[in-house]
Structure formats: structure tokens, C-alpha cells
């Protein structure tokens, strides 16, 4: 039983990585007042580029760099449309998502002729598990040792990067001078402008961080979690990350916990024990579909106000213009 719990938690962690990375990216953009539905597209683009570059260079790290690159390119496109040209931010995001959906498949077909898939990556070109020091030695030490071995040790580099990204985001947003400007830009851009800081520059800076994290979340899918890119690989994960960010009220730690909670549901939904438990309550035919739905249902319940009112940054979605 205890081992089962640890294994589920371990799976939760692994599932949560793309959510956590993307949610942190979302926090940067939205705290600066730029809506980011485009996490989905950045994730998908990042997944494709990471797998492709890793295949060509046989290096997961080059793949990651490529993913970061495409993330930044997408977020700059979003920035150009919605910050510089003051377009509708939601429309720009939707465009990026559709663009990513189409482009990745077209390029994958053109380059690899595998029906929108990229070639399987060898071990060397993937992010493999890292055993932390003393994991083996502590393995049999009750509880603490087991947690260390199963839960903390034995993940790939991106898992650790994701969970370092959380305190990093929290520090930048709340404890750095840049964070003060970032938050002020999202709350009252006019006030920022009158103090002599450029609103648009601050928003672009936020979007660069957003692109980096968004691209990385994609790289995790195709070069760490799996070893190839496949059509529509992100499958709505970007939206779930966005939902987690809102449930966490645009704060890094609560957003991380929301990501973990959603991931937990993903982790248990395929466990036979859960299936047996719920078999009596739901018709068996529907049960599988229901379990598949559960993370999404929870998202809706949370967003419908179950966790209390989520107050967005005041100026979110508003292009900045002096001329009113």
C-alpha cells in the first residue's frame, strides 16, 4: 500500500512537469497584463522542435534549446500582435494555437514521412533519470529513505528544472525590482507609464520568460516523458496549465499545487484499484470515460468559484494605449 502511494505520487510528479512549467510561464505573461491562451501552442511547438532537433543533433539539450527558441518566437508573435499592434489578445492566442497544430504536423510529415510523428529518439538523445547521491544507500531506510529514493531521486533533469522554476518565479515576481514593474504593469499600466517606465518593454520582457518556460514544457513531452513527437501531443495540457494558474490565483506556489492536484487525478485514473472502487457507483461502461474526464471536471468546478473568487490582474487583456 505504502509503495503504491509512493508510486502514485511519483507518477503525479512526472505528469505535473509540463503543467508546472507552462503555468509559471503563464504567470509571467498574465501578471504583466497579457492573456496567454497560447501556452497550448507553445507546448506543442516546443515538443515538435525538441524532438526534431534532438533527432538531428542526437542531443536532448540542443532539443531543449530549440524548444525554448520556438517558445520565444511564438511569444514574440503574440507580443507583436497584442502588445505592439494592440490586437485582441485572445484572438492572437487562438491563432498561435491553430498555427502550431498545423505547422508541426506539416513539417513532421515533410521531413520524416511518418504520419505526423518524429523518429524514435535513442536514450542518449533523451532526458534520462538522474540518480541523486546516496539514493541506493538510503533506499531501505524507512519512510525518509523511501521517499528520497522513489519520489525525490530518479527523475530527469527537466523535472528538477520545473520545480526550481517555481521558487524562481516566486522570487522574480514578488521579490525582485523587475517583479514590481511586472505586477504594476498588469495592475495599472498608466501608472507605470507616468513613472517613466515603458509598459510595452516590460510586457515583452515578461513574454520572453513566458516563451522560455512554455517551450520547455513542450520539450518535456517529447524528449523526456516520451521519445518522439506525435500529432496533437499537448492534448489540452496548455489549457489545463492555464486553469491551474487561475485556480492558484496567479501565484506560483498555489499554481504549482493546483498542477499537482490535476496531475494526481491523471495519475490515479488508470489504476485498477480506483476502477474497482468506483465500479459499484457508476455503470462500468461510463466509468472509463468518467475517469478520463475527471481532471477536466475538477478544473471546471474549481474555476466556477469553488476555491473562492480569483481576481485577475486588473489590466489583463487590455492593450496599453495612451490615447484612451
Amino acid at each position: 500500500m505504502w509503495t503504491d502511494v509512493l508510486l502514485i505520487l511519483d507518477a503525479t510528479l512526472r505528469i505535473s512537469v509540463p503543467f508546472v512549467l507552462a503555468a509559471m510561464g503563464g504567470i509571467f505573461a498574465e501578471r504583466s497584463g497579457v492573456i496567454d491562451f497560447g501556452l497550448e501552442g507553445k507546448m506543442l511547438g516546443g515538443a515538435f522542435v525538441a524532438a526534431t532537433v534532438a533527432h538531428w543533433t542526437q542531443s536532448a539539450w540542443w532539443g531543449l534549446l530549440g524548444a525554448i527558441g520556438i517558445g520565444i518566437i511564438f511569444s514574440m508573435m503574440h507580443g507583436y500582435a497584442s502588445v505592439s499592434k494592440r490586437g485582441n489578445q485572445v484572438v492572437s492566442c487562438v491563432a498561435i494555437n491553430i498555427f502550431a497544430m498545423g505547422l508541426t504536423v506539416v513539417l513532421a510529415n515533410a521531413w520524416f514521412h511518418m504520419g505526423g510523428k518524429t523518429p524514435q529518439l535513442p536514450r542518449e538523445a533523451r532526458f534520462m533519470s538522474i540518480d541523486l547521491p546516496f539514493a541506493e544507500e538510503l533506499r531501505n531506510f524507512p519512510i525518509i529513505g523511501e521517499i528520497y529514493y522513489e519520489l525525490i531521486s530518479g527523475h530527469n533533469a527537466l523535472v528538477y528544472i520545473a520545480f526550481i522554476a517555481v521558487p524562481f518565479t516566486a522570487w522574480v515576481v514578488f521579490k525582485s525590482s523587475f517583479g514590481l514593474r511586472l505586477r504594476a504593469t498588469g495592475e495599472n499600466p498608466l501608472a507605470v507609464d507616468t513613472t517613466g517606465i515603458s509598459v510595452n518593454k516590460t510586457r515583452y520582457q515578461a513574454l520572453i520568460l513566458n516563451g522560455i518556460l512554455g517551450g520547455m514544457s513542450g520539450a518535456y513531452l517529447s524528449t523526456a516523458h516520451l521519445a518522439f513527437f506525435v500529432k496533437d501531443m499537448s492534448a489540452g495540457k496548455g489549457y489545463i496549465a492555464l486553469a491551474a494558474m487561475i485556480v492558484g490565483k496567479w501565484r506560483p506556489y498555489p499554481a504549482m499545487f493546483a498542477c499537482l492536484l490535476f496531475s494526481f487525478l491523471f495519475a490515479i485514473k488508470d489504476k485498477p484499484e480506483i476502477f474497482d472502487l468506483l465500479k459499484g457507483i457508476f455503470p462500468v461502461k461510463l466509468l472509463n470515460s468518467f475517469l478520463d474526464m475527471s481532471p477536466y471536471i475538477l478544473t471546471i468546478i474549481f474555476l466556477a468559484g469553488f476555491v473562492g473568487r480569483a481576481v485577475a490582474p486588473k489590466a489583463i487583456g487590455q492593450p496599453f494605449s495612451k490615447e484612451k
Binding site: 514578488f174 521579490k175 525582485s176 525590482s177 523587475f178 517583479g179 514590481l180 514593474r181 504594476a184 501608472a191 507605470v192 513613472t195 517613466g196 517606465i197
Partner: peptide
């Protein structure tokens, strides 16, 4: 302070 920050740490 907004806009006149010095250094990286708030």
C-alpha cells in the same frame, strides 16, 4: 519606488 528601483533585489 516603482520606476526608480536600484539593483535587482526589491
Amino acid at each position: 519606488v516603482l520606476g526608480t528601483e536600484t539593483g535587482f533585489s526589491l
